[in-house]
Amino acid sequence: MYGAMKVAIGGPLKLGFRPWVEGLENVPAEGPAILASNHLSFSDSFFLPAVLDRKVTFIAKAEYFTSPGVKGKLTAAFFKGVGQLPVDRSGGRGAGEAAIKSGIEVLERGELFGIYPEGTRSPDGRLYRGKPGGLARVALATGAPVLPVAMIDTEKIQPPGKVMPKLMRPGIRIGEPLDFTRYQGMEQDRFVLRALTDEVMYEIMKLSGQEYVDIYATAAKRQITEAAKAAKAAEKAEAAEKAEDGQKERTGS
């Protein structure tokens, strides 16, 4: 099913958008490896597999696989076909453990596992702090090499609010593999997890050219949402004040 779906989706993606790629020679022809990528767009999980000869498995929200109706079944078939694994991410720590377990299983089969260390899409195109729990623990548990990956301009293809994608050439840079076997057996050391994650994020930053922000993307999204709410409230208050002033002028009070 994966092969058929790759042809059905990957072919048109490559033909229509003509993504350019650097560093394909860094992806091993066989054996396990972790592709740790920045995350700019929903389409990242499609463009990266489209340019690789090997199957790469990402984690996807369980809702994509369990939605009811014909549309839900088609969506589930699509995500299964492109190599996505369903993980229920609503359960906090338990969800994280499930994602780690799934990643380890993929690598133990000698396959490629894709992960976004930021944990969510960048809200503004900048690169955010990597979460140490997933990437680092999977890497240390398996000894698999980590390949830093930079997706470039994918966020410009279909910005929020746009229905039709813009035909343009996104880019993909794949860095040289990073070996963290020196840290094996230290999965419970939070300083090691942090150091490993930061090293990978630094390599992604060099590949992508993004501005790095040392906070989590989830926190940045909250800040942006709160700022937007504050701006809207200020606008509303200003409009109400102008209306009140206008009323006073009309009544002469």
Rank of each mutant, 00 (worst) to 15 (best):
P19F: 05
G91Q: 15
A62V: 11
Q210H: 09
F65Q: 08
G133V: 06
P68F: 07
F65Y: 07
G119H: 03
G96Q: 11
A227Q: 13
R126Y: 01
Y202G: 15
L85S: 00
I104Y: 09
E187Y: 06
F65T: 06
I172K: 04
I34Y: 04
T251H: 12
I59Y: 08
G83I: 06
G161T: 07
R129V: 06
A233N: 05
V21N: 04
Y216A: 11
K221D: 06
D44N: 10
G246F: 01
M151S: 10
G83S: 05
G143S: 08
W20L: 01
V138R: 02
I204E: 03
V149P: 12
G134F: 09
M201Y: 01
R121T: 08
G175H: 01
K71T: 10
A231E: 11
P68D: 11
F58T: 11
T181G: 00
I215D: 10
K232A: 15
K236M: 11
E176C: 03
R137P: 05
Q247L: 15
V7W: 09
A237F: 09
Y2G: 15
P28T: 03
T218F: 14
G133F: 14
D53R: 15
A233R: 07
V21C: 08
K242R: 12
G11D: 11
R169C: 02
E22G: 04
E241M: 11
V51K: 12
A33S: 06
G161Y: 11
G246I: 10
G130C: 00
S37H: 01
I174V: 07
A239S: 09
A195W: 11
D179A: 05
V192H: 07
S43V: 15
S102M: 15
P165M: 02
I157F: 03
E111G: 06
K206H: 08
A4W: 02
R129L: 13
K55P: 15
K232N: 09
F113H: 02
V27I: 06
A150I: 11
G11V: 15
V213S: 04
A230K: 10
L48Y: 02
A233S: 01
Y216W: 12
I104G: 07
R182T: 07
G11K: 13
P117S: 01
F180G: 00
M5S: 14
L127E: 02
G103Y: 00
R173C: 00
A240G: 09
G91N: 15
L107K: 00
D198C: 09
G96C: 04
K61D: 08
G175S: 00
G252A: 11
L147N: 11
Q210W: 01
R18G: 10
G114K: 08
K14A: 09
T154E: 03
D189Y: 04
Y183H: 11
L15N: 02
A50P: 12
K131V: 06
F47V: 15
E111K: 05
V82M: 07
L207D: 00
Q84L: 05
Q184H: 03
G81R: 04
A33E: 10
D44M: 12
E111R: 04
A220C: 04
I9F: 02
E238R: 14
A227E: 14
K162R: 14
